[in-house]
Amino acid sequence: NLVQLYWDIILLTESKFLLPQYRQQQQSLKSFQKYVVDKMGVTLNRMVKPVKVPYSRTGNLNTPWRQLGIKYLMVYLPLHFKDVIWCKCDQFCFHVILPQNNASSALRRGISNDKEWLLSLLELGDKLGMQSIRIYIGRDDFNGVSTFLRNLNWIGGRLVPNENRAG
C-alpha cells in the first residue's frame, strides 16, 4: 500500500503537466503512466550512480520540469491554499505547482500578502537543500497573481521562459 501511495503521488504530481486536451483520453493516460514508470527507472539508476550536472541559471536544461523528481512532496498550507500543493525536487530545484483556480484569498483580493506562503516555500526549499525554487502558476489564474508578478523584482524572483517543446 505504501508503494502504491508513492506511485500515486508521483503520477498525480507529474499529471499536472499533462496538456488539457489529453487529460480525458484513456490511451494518452496509459502512455503517460508508462512514460512515468519508465523514466522513474532511469531516475532510480541515476540515484544509484549519480552524475554531477553543473547548475546554471541561464537555461532550463539542467532543471527541466520534465525530468522526474528525486523526491515528491504533498505540501499543505491551509491558511493560504485550500488544496494540497504538489511538489517535486530534482538535484537542484524545488518544483512547486500551485493549485489552479485556488490561490490564496489574499492573492485573489490583490492584497500584498504573498510573502507568507512564499517564505514558507522558500524555507522548505532551503531545508531540502535546494538551490532554487520554481513556482508553477496556472495561466488561467493570471488575474490572481498579477500583483505578485508586479512585485517580482522586489521579492527577488524572475520569470522563466517556457520550454521550447518543438526544439
Partner: peptide, 16 residues
C-alpha cells in the same frame, strides 16, 4: 513526451 507541456503555467524562479 509530447503530451506534456508547461504552456499551462507561468513559471517563477527564486533562489533559496
Amino acid at each position: 513526451d509530447l503530451i506534456f507541456g508547461d504552456e499551462n503555467y507561468i513559471i517563477l524562479e527564486f533562489e533559496c
